[in-house]
Design a protein around this nucleic acid. Sequence first.
RNA 1: CCGCCCUUAGCUCAGCCUGGUAGAGCAGCCGACUGUAGAUCGGCUUGUCCCCCGUUCAAUUCGGGGAGGGCGGACCA
Length: 341
Amino acid sequence: MNDSERRRLVTRNTAEVVTDEELDDLLENDPTIYVGYAPTGEMHIGHFTTIRKLADFLRADLDVTVLIADLHAHLDDEKSPFELLDERTAYYREAIEGMVAAAGADPTEIEFVEGREFELDADYSLELLRMAADTTISRVQRAGSEVVRQSENPKLGGLIYPLMQTLDIDALDADIAYGGIDQRGIYMLSRELFADRGDEPPVCVFAPLLAGLSGGKMSASDATSKVNLTDDADTVAEKLQGAYCPQGEVEDNGVLEYMDYLVFPILDERGESFEIERPDEYGGDLVYESYDELEDDFVSGELHPQDLKNAAAEYVSSVIAPVRERIDTDRLATAYPEKYE
RNA sequence: CCGCCCUUAGCUCAGCCUGGUAGAGCAGCCGACUGUAGAUCGGCUUGUCCCCCGUUCAAUUCGGGGAGGGCGGACCA
């Protein structure tokens, strides 16, 4: 595989790369890339869009490491109780493997690591303390503001969080730090801290974040604003039916984003097209080979939101189906006892 | 260790002084209107009033204790 093809695989469907030049340099060798997920709430379709890209990284022949950041899950305002860390870690790993497989790659090629395996090592702890001694509260707060839960009475844990994430890059020997664009603040701080220590800063690749179905940002607490990986076909249809989707508008349109970032990339991989059934009175069925064609028709008014929603629900459901089937519901229940009695 | 303040609907809070089991805004849900959703209009729901004990016919309200949280003081050897 030549460099430009690798580059295309690594960067397609991303929100930002910092920096392009540094990435090019790395791709001349065999770079390692890592992404971390804190096993907090149930995984949803937003995770799928970032995880789907891991398949691209594997195809580009990168060394992919996935960190299940168990300590981070607890450190961030105790989103996960300490006692549930093991169960949630197991659930996250299983779900992530399912998503990678659903994206057409082999999950066994990924190296999975858990935070407690190395974040408690003496040298890691020492570096953490040295970093804490040298970093102001406001800088860390600002870096983590998009990721760490904000509250009136923030815990110390939320300040340690970005520092540990920075040390993880080093500890896992990652040349590239990958994550959602919400991670940008933390990784930009990481790059500065690396430079301060005289180390080579990581290249950062950011995935776009899916908008919420109710318009605006996706909210973890608003169940109707996102599709869960365990949602069945009817639930998916119900949620998409209720989605904010103004005719002809692309802005804040969650339904279109689902198509762009999730459905079309996967259809692409399978070599399938997007087919919309439409009553004759409205013009009959439609077929799209690419997202751009679909967006054009939507903007022009040729494609009505209701017809899009109907088809979108089916495709979204079919895309998450393999993940849904792979998730062990008993494990899910023990990982979230307050939700599944 | 000491002092002061806070804890009421999913969220932000009012009510408590002058006891009679509670309200607003937002959110949410339903209906109307659009071939979707939203916006708009109409309607509706929601509560161990942090816990325990006491006073009282009656406590969210008064008294005592406790828990959780916040702020300040003291200490700076």
